[in-house]
Design a protein around this nucleic acid. Sequence first.
DNA 1: AGTGGAATAGTTCACACCGAATATTTCGCT
DNA 2: AGCGAAATATTCGGTGTGAACTATTCCACT
Lengths: 195, 195
Amino acid sequence: MPAAAALTPLGLSALALLTEGPMHPYEMYQLLIRRLKNEIVKVRPGSLYHAIDRLERDGYARVVGTDRDGQRPERTTYEITETGRLALQTRVSQLLADSPYEYPEFALAISEAHNLPRQAVVQLLRVRLADLRRQAEEVGDMITQKQSDGAQRLFMLHAEHRAALLTAETGWLAALIDDLAEHRIAWIDDPDFMH
Amino acid sequence: MPAAAALTPLGLSALALLTEGPMHPYEMYQLLIRRLKNEIVKVRPGSLYHAIDRLERDGYARVVGTDRDGQRPERTTYEITETGRLALQTRVSQLLADSPYEYPEFALAISEAHNLPRQAVVQLLRVRLADLRRQAEEVGDMITQKQSDGAQRLFMLHAEHRAALLTAETGWLAALIDDLAEHRIAWIDDPDFMH
DNA sequence: AGTGGAATAGTTCACACCGAATATTTCGCT
DNA sequence: AGCGAAATATTCGGTGTGAACTATTCCACT
C-alpha cells in the first residue's frame, strides 16, 4: 500500500456512508443526492467510482461481494474496514481543526478588477449582490423550515455556517459598491489616477 | 481552435501579466510570487507552464521569440493577443458577477462532525478558532500597514474581503463552540439522543 | 586560488484526479 | 410494441502537482 494520500472530499463522504453498512456505489450515489450532500461536495458518478476505487486501494474499504438484480449491470458491494474508520475520524478531525485555504475565485476577480472600467465593475457587482442576497434568503428559509420540522440542530450546522458567511459577504459587498459608485475609491480610469 | 474552455485562475493571472508587456514564463513566475499572487491563486511552476501552453493553444497569447542567457535553458517569450485581451476582460466580468460555488471543505467537516464525540469536536474547533483569529489579525495588520504606506485602496480590496469573511467566521465559530461546550446542541453521544 | 554546497534560472515529465459524456440494460407507461 | 426514464457503470480528455533535471552563479571556507 503506497503512501495513501489524504481523503478527498468525495472519498470522505463515501467512507462516511459505508459507516452505515455495506453498500454498492450506485446506492451511495443515490443516498448522497437524496441527502443533498450535493450542496456540500461535488457528487458526480464518475468521480464517485474513482473515489471508491481509491478507498479500496488504500485499504479503507473492501469488496464483500457482487450481486446482480435481474439482468441489470452487476453491482459490487463494499464495506468499511477498521483502518477506514480510523482514517475517517482522523480526516474529519484534521479538517475541523485546520482546513486549508481554498483560493476563492472571487478574490482573484477583485484583484484583477482594475482591468475593467469602474462603471462596469459597479454594474457587475450589483448583479452579484442580488444573487448573494437571493442565496442568503434561500438558506435562511431552509433553516427556519427545517427548524419548524423539528430537525436536530446538529444537522443544520453547515447551513448556519453558510448563512453567516453569506451575510458577511453581502454586507461587505454592498458597502464596496457604494464606495465605488460614489468615487470614494480611486480607479485607474480616473483622470487624476496616478501611481 | 476548438472550443477554448474557460480561463483557469492561473491562466487568468498569467494573461493579466502579459497585459503589462511580453514576458517569458519564469519571469511571470517571479512576478507572481513577488506580488504575493500566491495568496490568491495557487502558483506552481508546473501548472504555470501548462497554463501558458493553453493560452497559446487558444490564441490568447503568441510566441514572440526565444533567447538564451549564456548556457542557461532557452526561454520563450510570449505576448498577449487581441483575443486574449478580450478573453481576460470577459472572464473577469463573469467572475465578478457570478463566481461559482466552491464547496469549502470545512462545511463537509462540520457535516461529518457527528462521527466524533462532542468533546473532541469542541477541542478541535478551539484550535481552528485560534488559528482563524491569528489569520484575521495578520490580514488586519497587513491592511493597516499598507494603508499607512499610502497604497491605493484599489489594490487592497481582496484583503478587505478576506478580513470581512474571517471576522464573520470567527464570530460564528466562537458562538458554536459555546453552544457545543454548554450542551445547548444535542449530540449523538448524549445519553438521551434519539432520532 | 580552489572546492563544494546553496541558491537561482528555467523547464520537462509522469502521474493522479475530476467530471462530462456515453454505454447498456431494464422497467414502467401509453 | 414502442419509448422514455431509471439503474448501473466505464471511458477519456483536460488540468494540476511534485519531483526531477540541467545549467549557472554566489559565497563560505580552506
